[in-house]
Design a protein around this nucleic acid. Structure first.
Length: 442
RNA sequence: GGAGAGGUGGCAGAGCGGUUGAAUGCACCGCACUCGAAAUGCGGCAUAGGGGCAACUCUAUCGGGGGUUCGAAUCCCUCCCUCUCCGCCA
């Protein structure tokens, strides 16, 4: 969420920044006009309140001195102010809400070096800060070659008896799957492997958050008010709770409405959770298989940092997510999202796209974003800088998948498939599979 | 689910209709004392929004929201949360 004071001081920069965003037509002048009216209301209200407070003090003194006549006179004088104060308070509430609502739907400011582009076709491959195609090739697995036509994951999974979309449809409708046997275990192994990696090697604290959250939390991480249609809600007496679309919501909101000390930063949280998405805008897309489900597991990474540390933390987090794919021996590329593809709350986003030989294409398996203080403002999450008395500052937040477990299962199955329909278990997962080296093989 | 108690500043904890943004203690930061430290003394120490070039000043905030009143931390309504007891339960 933008700070109206910042917009006032940087009107041209704001207009230029907003112009880079798709489908946003707001201008600084619109917002400043609301703010002007707001200030005007506040000034008049404050003056009335000041008068009332001064008179009330005098009444208190008069009463203390038993001067009832004087008190009566003052009281009748102030009574007239009551209406205008109450009206002013109502006006202030209304205008604050108007400004808040206007600001709440404006997407975050992009970093200057985010490439311009209308949609994902404008994304640019990213090789790291000082990287090149050659340097990344040294650490990433090459694209696998097959002596046979590689199958898609659902063909492999169904043939192994480990993926059942038909029975899932009976239970829950489309975009659900039932995993069974060693495929289910492989999915579990992937989640455990990722969680262990991030907690043991990357310094993240494991969290088991609630999977149902309030609207306030969703506002904090930008799902509300603009993206309500993407959510599932569980209704209950007296309200509703949303099923989390990503653990970014509970993990980031862990610091909401708090005053951290600088020494605590950075905070790094990770969680393996189911995620629930209505996929309202994706009707007809990716309907085969388990690429796009209403429910899937994901390991999420969230960092809370000082403003100075967030840009470096972004690169670090990207590295944490990449390590997952490197250890699994999966071929992938990193894309620096263009202006038309970066999400609402992010200043910059890197996507990890894993190679799916069955689909013969790269597919997103992780998205790593730096949000600056955008979410912190929405959550009121601040920290007090160390040293002499300093004003509190908003923290910076980052989030990334590390990685989407369901999609990673797809990637493992397609990349490790054998001609006989079996799937080799990647080395790093074998300890999680009781030493099993192959599914469906012998 | 039933009955009760409670939510006050970084923390602990008073106040329960009148100059209270809020006693007191702890923590923290200056200064004094000291060779230094401790102890002690003095002073400072919330957040947000306005106005002002500035010094400064005004307003709001005692869980959230609404109300009564000239005036609310104090009274009323409502919601949320915490604790205790009983019941139920994985």
């Amino acid at each position: 969420m933008f700070d109206i004071k910042w917009i006032r001081a940087n009107a041209e920069a704001f207009d230029a920044a907003v112009a880079r965003r798709k489908g946003v037509s707001v201008r600084s002048s619109d917002l400043l006009a609301i703010d002007d009216r707001r200030r005007d209301i506040i000034v008049r209200l404050n003056q009335a309140q000041e008068k009332r407070n001064a008179a009330s003090k005098l009444i208190g003194q008069a009463k203390a001195q038993k001067d009832e006549a004087k008190a009566e006179a003052l009281m009748s004088e102030v009574t007239a102010l009551k209406d205008s104060i109450q009206q002013g308070e109502a006006e202030e509430r209304a205008i604050e809400l108007e400004l808040h609502n206007a600001l709440a739907v404006i997407p975050n400011l992009l970093f200057d070096d985010v490439p311009d582009g209308a949609d994902e076709s404008g994304n640019v491959e990213y090789f790291g800060r000082n990287g090149t195609p050659e340097t990344v090739a040294k650490v990433r697995a090459p694209r696998p070659s097959f002596s046979f036509a590689p199958k898609e994951h659902y063909e492999i999974g169904e043939a192994l008896g480990g993926m059942d979309f038909e029975v899932a449809a009976k239970l829950s409708g489309s975009r659900f799957v039932v995993l069974k046997g060693q495929v289910a275990r492989l999915e579990r192994a992937l989640g455990q492997f990722m969680l262990d990696l991030h907690t043991n090697a990357h310094g993240y604290t494991e969290v088991q958050p609630p999977l149902l959250v309030k609207d306030d939390a969703l506002f904090g991480t930008n799902q509300l008010p603009k993206f309500e249609d993407d959510l599932f809600f569980a209704g209950h007496a007296g309200g509703r709770l949303a099923l989390i679309p990503t653990a970014e919501v509970p993990l980031t909101n862990l610091v909401r409405e708090s005053m951290l000390s600088e020494e605590e930063l950075p905070l790094r949280f990770t969680a393996l959770t189911p995620c629930f998405r209505s996929e309202a805008g994706s009707a007809g897309r990716d309907t085969r298989g388990m690429l796009r489900q209403h429910q899937f597991n994901k390991v999420e990474l969230v960092s809370i940092t000082s403003p100075e540390a967030s840009v470096d933390e972004h690169e670090r987090m990207l590295g944490c997510a990449e390590t997952v794919l490197q250890k699994l021996g999966l071929h992938y590329r990193v894309m620096n999202l263009c202006s038309g593809d970066v999400g609402f709350g992010a200043k910059r986003t890197y996507d990890l796209e894993v190679w799916l030989p069955g689909q013969d294409t790269y597919r997103e398996i992780s998205s790593v974003s730096v949000c600056g203080d955008f979410q912190a403002r929405r959550m009121d999450a601040r920290y007090r800088p160390a040293g002499e008395k300093q004003a509190p500052r908003f923290v910076h937040t980052l989030n990334g998948s590390g990685t989407a477990v369901g999609r990673c299962l797809i990637a493992v199955m397609e990349n490790y498939q054998q001609e006989d329909g079996s799937v080799l278990v990647p080395d790093v997962l074998q300890p999680y599979m009781g030493g099993l080296k192959s599914i469906g093989g012998r």
